[in-house]
């Protein structure tokens, strides 16, 4: 039988081992992400907000609580780009400083959500049996509690600090991630490549985190990006209700403080609202781009 394909001739070995690593998959990942223009736009918005949150306070060195002018000035009036709020504080500066808190709490809460959700979902889906039963009953217990109410109770029970707020949001919102991770694990654990990984002697820990997890990630990544958005909304809701640290400026707090002037000075709630909207939208677009980038089937050489 002619078998031209199975020649056992070695090609010239690469001169340098570095050559082998040149086409790192990360490059393909980045290339795929940037092919999605909406995702690039989302990333730009996100980077702008994070950049402003990080650097503006360093450069400006202002106090967002300082009353700088008359209350409820219109945007542009008195040299205030976005006007002033009910206590005469500069709205633009407040939003820039608020981005810090919003981003930090949103990110931390999403991190806690993912950590709890992934661990519980992965264990339940991978081990099945009684582990699954117990973990899913726990998950259902948390699912039937009204999340905002539970978060409010948690913040009220403990001190209203940013840490408490982030943890509370994490504790009430991990159930979706857990169920999603469990479903992915249940599907993936039966795949042949998991059997193949076992047959080369991989242990459970390796199979869960290195073999199955990367395959389970695409939907979870999208979910993570959305989770950041949801956590930001949550934080806004809590500070709107006055259940956050009153000594730090946040977007939710701005809306909450100014809600009585909604009809007289709509910009005082609109601008923080737009900030929240843009951030959540950016996270959603980023999630979309990440899905594309994570899917090796969309990559081309």
């Amino acid at each position: 039988m002619s078998d031209s394909e199975s020649t056992t001739q070695a090609g010239p070995p690469p001169a340098d081992m570095d050559e082998i690593f040149v086409e790192h998959p990360f490059r393909q990942f980045v290339a795929m992400y940037f092919r999605n223009y909406a995702a690039v736009a989302g990333l730009l918005v996100f980077v702008t907000i994070v950049g402003a949150a990080l650097f503006a306070p360093m450069i400006l060195d202002l106090d967002p609580f300082e009353m700088v002018d008359e209350p409820l000035l219109r945007p542009g009036e008195g040299g205030h780009l976005l006007g002033t709020d009910n206590l005469g504080r500069d709205l633009f500066i407040a939003i820039v400083y608020g981005a810090r808190v919003t981003m930090a709490v949103g990110g931390a809460a999403a991190g806690i959500t993912l950590f709890i959700g992934l661990t519980i979902g992965a264990m339940a889906g991978f081990y099945r049996g009684w582990v699954d039963e117990v973990l899913m009953r726990v998950t259902e217990f948390f699912q039937v509690l009204p999340p905002l109410l539970l978060a409010m109770v948690l913040v009220a029970l403990f001190s209203p600090t940013l840490e408490t707020v982030a943890i509370s949001i994490g504790v009430v919102s991990w159930t979706g991630v857990a169920r999603l991770a469990r479903a992915e694990f249940l599907r993936l654990r039966e795949q042949e490549f998991v059997k193949a990984a076992r047959s080369i002697g991989a242990r459970d820990r390796r199979i869960i985190w290195l073999v199955i997890m990367p395959n389970a990630l695409p939907p979870l990544i999208v979910n993570a990006a959305l989770t950041v958005g949801i956590a930001i909304l949550f934080e806004a809701a809590l500070s709107f209700l006055g259940l956050s640290d009153p000594n730090v400026m946040s977007w939710g707090k701005l809306i909450g403080d100014n809600r009585d002037y909604l009809l007289d000075a709509p910009w005082t709630v609109t601008f923080p609202g737009v900030a929240i909207f843009l951030t959540v939208l950016a996270m959603s677009l980023i999630g979309d781009g990440l899905t594309d980038a994570f899917n090796p089937k969309l990559r081309e050489r």
Partner: peptide, 28 residues
């Protein structure tokens, strides 16, 4: 001990080459 044996002393190849490889890692 079995984990040492698997892949090192006894290996296995499977029926479905389409699904036996992990799609997220390069073959190397």
């Amino acid at each position: 001990r079995m984990r040492e044996v698997r892949g090192n002393e006894i290996s296995m190849i499977f029926q479905e080459p389409m699904t036996s490889l992990n799609p997220v890692y390069s073959i190397g």
